[in-house]
């Protein structure tokens, strides 16, 4: 109905009975050059990101082993198994992944901001400190995992020796489900705080100096300047880094896998580890695809929320 009405509108006559003046034909819109510029990137995105995602979602409705050409359509069975409690470790992995995000991201932000604020001042040797803090971010995951594996080694590890030196008994940090995930959190925080520091340092350079000068003239202390000027001005960067942190937390795999393999007793299982185990250890790519789809949904929800937050942060600074 609506379509017909709008289609008839141009043929209506004017009140005076004269035929309506032909409206000028709208100019043919030329394709935006912007889209042409991004077309190659979009093509790459379509082939290497969009297609795998679509194929993964499709695969999640099948049961297959990745070797045999036979694929059985199972409808929502993989999702029923995953969400319906038949897989005892899925919800544990979801909880751990969310815990990982909730714990590591704020710690990385806080440490990154703290280091940046400290190293922005007139500190002797700050270039060296910056390099030292940033170094873990450029090391490979395997190197980091092996290095920390030695730190936490229950026999000879540095952490174990320190505890023994202060009179404690040697602790199997990675053997105890109560401590293993916190040890892994610590490694993650250590690794990325330096990277966050670098971003914050760059953002601090962009804050107008006159704000600090005015505040100093008004008698604001160092701490008040940090709290009232630096932190609010860094809000957009904080949201951006939160986004990076959340994405990094959802992608976390190598370090935890090498350190603990998701153990002991699934204490450090993350969704990414579950996906790997199901696809490659258990030869159930269909079920792994269902978990990957769940991770995609989780990531998309977080991305939307953070997008809104970013708009708010940008507005609040302007």
């Amino acid at each position: 109905m609506t379509v017909r009405e709008s289609a008839e509108a141009p043929t209506a006559v004017t009140a005076a009975g004269a035929p309506p003046r032909a409206t000028p034909r709208p100019k043919r819109r030329r394709p935006s050059p912007g889209w042409l510029y991004v077309a190659p990137a979009l093509a790459v995105f379509a082939v290497f990101v969009a297609y795998p995602i679509v194929e993964t979602i499709r695969s999640s409705f099948y049961d297959f082993d990745g070797v045999s050409p036979i694929r059985d359509w199972v409808g929502l069975d993989n999702y029923t198994e995953m969400l319906g409690g038949l897989d005892p470790y899925f919800w544990k992995a979801v909880t751990n992944t969310l815990l990982w995000t909730v714990v590591t991201v704020p710690v990385q932000l806080a440490l990154g901001l703290g280091f940046a604020v400290l190293l922005d001042g007139a500190l002797r040797g700050k270039v060296v400190y910056r390099a030292v803090f940033f170094l873990p971010a450029v090391l490979s995951s395997a190197v980091i995992a092996f290095a920390w594996g030695w730190v936490f080694n229950p026999d000879e590890g540095v952490a174990t020796r320190v505890i023994r030196a202060v009179g404690g008994t040697g602790q199997g940090w990675l053997a105890d489900p109560g401590t293993a995930i916190w040890a892994a959190f610590g490694v993650s925080a250590w690794r990325y705080s330096g990277l966050f520091m670098l971003f914050y340092l760059a953002a601090i350079q962009m804050i107008p100096r006159d704000l600090y000068e005015s505040a100093t003239i008004d008698g604001a202390s160092w701490w008040q300047r940090v709290r009232r000027i630096t932190v609010p001005q860094l809000r957009p960067m904080t949201v951006l880094l939160t986004l990076f942190g959340v994405i990094g937390a959802f992608r976390e795999f190598e370090v935890v896998y090498i350190l603990t393999r998701g153990g002991p007793a699934h204490a450090t299982d993350l969704l990414s580890i579950q996906i790997f185990d199901q696809a490659f250890d258990l030869s159930r790519p269909g079920y792994a695809a269902a978990i990957a789809t769940a991770l995609l949904v989780l990531t998309a929800v977080c991305a939307v929320v953070l997008l809104r937050l970013m708009s708010w942060a940008n507005r609040s600074v302007q």
């Binding site: 995105f45 290497f48 990101v49 969009a50 795998p52 995602i53 194929e55 993964t56 499709r58 695969s59 297959f64 990745g66 070797v67 045999s68 050409p69 036979i70 694929r71 986004l243 994405i247 959802f250 992608r251 795999f253 990414s272 996906i275 790997f276 199901q278 696809a279 490659f280 790519p285 269909g286 792994a288 695809a289 990957a292 789809t293 991770l295 995609l296 990531t299 998309a300 977080c302 991305a303 953070l306 997008l307 970013m310």
Partner: peptide, 23 residues
């Protein structure tokens, strides 16, 4: 941001989405 979200999942997804067989 949407791309970043997708890229987060893509490597994990790609591993399980591909199969060499047909039906």
């Amino acid at each position: 941001i949407l791309g970043a979200g997708a890229i987060t999942a893509a490597p994990l997804l790609a591993a399980c989405g591909s199969d060499s067989g047909n039906d």
